[in-house]
């Protein structure tokens, strides 16, 4: 089972010394009466006359910039939540911290996607945002009249970032399937089963790779060739991949060749999406660096002799373990 971050409250830790100007608590119902969001009067007075009601998120390493309109802001004792228009959904950007004098010290932040019809494109954009913010050394969030610079902690959980990259990959594969086969697929609200992940991968490889190997449970003789109208099910929806040729290569392994499976049209994705797709190699490489560093850190402070002794395989000589 796999759960995308879009189905989970997602914390991205921060060890920052960033300060936001103290924003006093406001009853959210009052904001509604004001016909849209307005800044608290003291902020408006002190700020620039051209107050932009947007939040801008920047991560320099990825040349990433995203400007999102504010739809609502909620103020709590230890939390400020910006509700931002994020394509077809609402993105909640929450700052957690403490009030100090007339400022709000940010201790952590999080992104959370409002539950609605989570299309692959929306999930792809959201998971990309999380991966980029999680891997970037410094995240700059420009709020109206405030600039918040957040540096990610080196102890940021790698597993969470990797989870986002996995969600991003699944969403991308579904986007490819949607474009090629002209179908609409929504992400489920709950966890994703392994059989769905396999079907998503199968459809993606059918469309892009055209020829690939897969496991099969068949007693057919090696070299047997058969052609079928192949159908797969993703989240309960039947996906017609049309004609595919199957050749039994060896025990348990079959080669699949797409015959009339539709292909991905050229320039299938808009430029802003393509730019995110093209980040894949860089994101992977940064995750791998962190992974290998974490592995090395486990042995930090040990001499080579100590490491050798500690990682020597056990030798138990009792009769039950004599081989």
């Amino acid at each position: 089972m796999f759960t995308t971050a879009s189905n989970n409250m997602t914390f991205l830790g921060s060890e920052s010394n960033s300060y936001l100007r103290y924003l006093p608590p406001i009853n959210p119902t009052e904001l509604k009466k004001q016909n849209g969001f307005r800044f608290p009067p003291d902020i408006e007075k002190a700020g620039s006359p051209n107050v932009k009601q947007v939040v801008k998120i920047e991560v320099a390493e990825f040349d990433f910039e995203l400007e999102l309109k504010i739809s609502k802001v909620e103020f709590f004792q230890t939390e400020i939540v910006f509700h931002l228009e994020f394509y077809t959904s609402i993105l909640k950007l929450s700052f957690y911290g403490i009030k100090e004098d007339n400022r709000f010290r940010v201790k952590a932040y999080s992104f959370d996607l409002e539950k609605n019809d989570n299309t692959p494109e929306l999930v792809f954009r959201f998971e990309s945002l999380l991966s980029i913010c999680g891997l970037g050394k410094k995240l700059v969030i420009q709020l109206p009249n405030n600039k918040c610079e957040l540096s990610n902690s080196s102890k940021l959980e790698l597993a969470k970032i990797s989870n986002s990259l996995q969600g991003r990959q699944l969403a991308y594969r579904l986007m490819v399937t949607e474009k090629a086969l002209r179908v609409h697929i929504s992400f489920p609200k709950g966890p994703i089963a392994r059989k769905d992940i396999e079907s998503i991968g199968y459809c993606y490889h059918s469309i892009l790779d055209r020829k690939f190997e897969r496991f099969c449970n068949t007693n057919l003789q090696i070299g047997t060739v058969q052609t079928y109208d192949e159908k797969r099910e993703i989240f309960g929806k039947s996906i017609n991949l049309r004609k595919q040729k199957f050749t039994v290569l060896s025990y348990g392994v079959t080669e699949v060749e797409s015959v009339t499976t539709p292909i991905l049209p050229k320039n299938a994705f808009r430029n802003d999406i393509q730019k995110l797709i093209d980040l894949d190699e860089k994101l992977d490489s940064m995750v791998m660096d962190k992974y290998f560093n974490l592995f090395s850190n486990a042995f930090e402070g040990l001499t080579n002799e100590q490491i050798e002794a500690l990682t020597q395989r056990p030798d138990l000589s009792e009769s039950a373990f004599d081989f």
């Binding site: 990959q169 190699e281 791998m288 056990p314």
Partner: peptide
């Protein structure tokens, strides 16, 4: 990782071997 976006697993036996060494 590039294919699966997951890290390879290890078994509790390997964990045992690491702890045993210590």
């Amino acid at each position: 990782y590039s294919n699966t976006k997951t890290f390879p697993a290890i078994t509790s036996m390997t964990f045992f071997e690491a702890d045993f060494g210590i």
